[in-house]
Each structure stands twice: as structure tokens, then as C-alpha cells.
């Protein structure tokens, strides 16, 4: 694929994902409302919110520094760049050997830019939110990275073209291993990933940095107008991308091969099917989790990551490794 097509693809992907992720936010709000026996906002509410924020006056605090205005733009830019490396039902646009590192780096960078923007705003509320976000940030990526690298390494061992690329999930997937031990390990890692997804998009237990009832929106306390709109959009895209990762690892099957399509229609069908799978994963990890759990304290959340998820990731990885070495059975 030459550079021009890749650029067009990225633009198309960006438009599609912005639409799909905002639509999911509408669906999520509707579902959570129904879980609490409310009617909820209309499905397109996030679009109205976005347009309203875009048309509002953006207030820059007196104590904010230059980075305050730059951060939302950077966050959105990074999330758009991230789309080029995200598996969307087909191999990522710029998939190469080892692109998983770029993916993790960009995904973490969005959180880091949020923190920088919050610190630049000069508000103590935003500072507290930023500290919490930072603590969560360093805790949540460890179990995820361990699990992700283990799975990629394991797939590498059964033979793929581009090792440690997110494109490998569409050649071989983790369920193909088939042995009971591998299945157990994969299930453990699936749980780890669902918990990671919830913490990445900060819902349920992990709604700690935003914590609107406690530290007044945390990192976003000072943002308004266009700047807030850009942050909201980049958050929505990040949510879609994180869920895409989980879908690509655990449920990579496309349907275009079964209905006998190829070329452009196959791509479209696969993207749509992928979107449905993303919505299903987000339903479990976001809507239900958000509706049935409250927030943890920041100390408890750190404990969940290091004492529950991290050991679970280690155990899952060890099981997968033992399965490969063939020590048992």
C-alpha cells in the first residue's frame, strides 16, 4: 500500500472511529440509564454535547501556561496517530514488525498529555486529578504489557510473518493453541484485559482521576469550550482503540471470509463486524461495570493492580509458557 492510500485510509478511519465512538457513548449512556430505570438521553447526545462545547467560549485561566492550550490538540493528534496502528478488523495500516511498542507508547502518551495539560492549568483540583491519573497510569500498564507480550510471543512461536506486530492476530489467534492449559491461561488473561480496559477508559472502580463528585472533574477541572471538546473526542477515540485491542487479541475472527467477500466490501464488512464486537466488549467492561460498581480509593486501586491483576497476568503468562515448553502433558 503506498503512502497516499495509507493517508486516505487514516482519514477515513478517523472519521469513522470518531463517529462510532461517540455513537457508542450515546448507546452506553442509554443502556446505563435503562439499567437504572431511567429513559436516558437520545442516542446522538454525545454529538450534541460535542457541537455545544465547540461553539462555547473557551476560558483560559490566568495561571495557565502555554501547554494548557497545546495539550488538547496534542491529545487528539496522538489518538489519530494511534488509529494507524490499531487493528480494526483488518491489519493496522502501518503494521510492521514490533509495532506493538508504538501502540503501547501512543496509548500511554494520551494519558500523559492529559496529565501535562492538567498540571499546566494551575488549578489545585486539576493537580490532584493529575497525580491520581499518573498513579493509575503507571500501575495499569504493567499487567497489560505482560499479558500482551506473552500472547504475542506465544503467537510468534506458532509462526507468523511479522512478529510482535498487532497484525499477527489476524493470522493466528490465541484460541488456536487448543490445549486445555492454553485455554486456562487465555481466560485468565482475558479477565486481566477486561479489567485493564475498564481502567484505561476510567469507569467503575477506576473512575478515580475524573471523580466528578469528589475532586470536581480532576484533570479536566479547568478545561472548557473547544479545548474540552477536543479532549472528549480524543478520550472517545482512545476508548474505541483500547477496546479494539482487546477484541483483536481475543476475538479476531472476521466474517467476510465466510460470506465470500473480498476487496473493499470485505474491508467494510469486517470493520462493521469489528465495531459490533467492540461494542459488545465495551458493554461488559464499561456499561455493566459502570452501573454495578462505585469508585475505589486511589490506594485500593493501586492494590487491585499490583496485588490482583499483576499476579493474575503473571500466572496466565506462566501457564502459557508452561504450555509451550510442554513440561506438563
Amino acid at each position: 500500500m503506498n503512502l497516499l492510500y495509507a493517508t486516505l485510509g487514516l482519514i477515513a478511519l478517523y472519521i469513522y472511529v470518531s463517529f462510532a465512538s461517540l455513537l457508542w457513548e450515546g448507546i452506553d449512556r442509554k443502556l446505563v440509564a435503562r439499567m437504572q430505570r431511567r429513559v436516558g438521553p437520545p442516542l446522538l447526545q454525545p454529538f450534541y454535547d460535542f457541537l455545544k462545547l465547540m461553539s462555547k467560549e473557551s476560558i483560559i485561566p490566568k495561571h495557565a501556561n502555554k501547554f494548557y492550550e497545546l495539550a488538547p490538540v496534542l491529545a487528539l493528534a496522538v489518538s489519530i496517530a494511534l488509529l494507524a496502528y490499531t487493528p480494526m478488523g483488518f491489519a493496522p495500516l502501518f503494521a510492521t514488525k514490533g509495532d506493538v511498542i508504538v501502540f503501547i507508547y501512543l496509548l500511554t502518551l494520551i494519558g500523559f498529555i492529559r496529565v501535562l495539560g492538567a498540571i499546566s492549568s494551575g488549578s489545585p483540583y486539576a493537580q490532584i486529578g493529575a497525580q491520581r491519573e499518573m498513579i493509575i497510569l503507571v500501575s495499569r500498564e504493567v499487567p497489560m504489557m505482560l499479558a500482551l507480550f506473552t500472547i504475542l510471543w506465544r503467537l510468534n512461536n506458532i509462526g507468523v510473518e511479522k512478529p510482535f506486530s498487532l497484525a499477527t492476530f489476524y493470522q493466528r489467534n490465541i484460541w488456536e493453541l487448543g490445549t486445555p492449559l492454553a485455554l486456562i491461561g487465555t481466560f485468565i488473561l482475558l479477565v486481566v484485559f477486561l479489567a485493564w480496559l475498564a481502567s484505561e477508559i476510567e469507569v467503575g472502580f477506576f473512575d478515580i482521576p475524573e471523580a466528578e463528585t469528589e475532586v470536581a472533574e480532576g484533570p479536566m477541572a479547568e478545561y472548557s469550550g473547544r479545548h474540552l471538546a477536543l479532549f472528549e473526542l480524543s478520550n472517545a477515540i482512545k476508548m474505541f482503540v483500547s477496546a479494539s485491542l482487546v477484541v483483536a487479541i481475543f476475538f479476531p475472527w472476521g466474517i467476510s471470509a465466510y460470506v465470500g467477500l473480498n476487496g473493499i466490501p470485505a474491508l467494510v464488512v469486517d470493520v462493521l463486524f469489528h465495531t459490533i464486537k467492540v461494542f459488545a466488549v465495551l458493554f461488559v467492561s464499561m456499561s455493566i461495570f459502570r452501573a454495578i460498581t462505585g469508585r475505589l480509593r486511589i490506594t485500593q486501586a493501586v492494590q487491585v493492580f499490583w496485588l490482583r491483576l499483576f499476579p493474575a497476568a503473571i500466572i496466565g503468562s506462566l501457564i502459557l509458557a508452561i504450555d509451550l515448553l510442554g513440561v506438563i502433558a
Binding site: L31, R34, M35, Q36, R37, R38, V39, G40, I288, I292
Partner: peptide, 13 residues
């Protein structure tokens, strides 16, 4: 929560 999902909302519109 899951059973609520299949009930009518208890709202007066």
C-alpha cells in the same frame, strides 16, 4: 441491573 434492562423506565416524561 440486568433485569432492569428489560423493564420499562419508571419515568414520567
Amino acid at each position: 441491573v440486568l433485569s432492569n434492562l428489560f423493564k420499562k423506565p419508571a419515568t414520567n416524561m
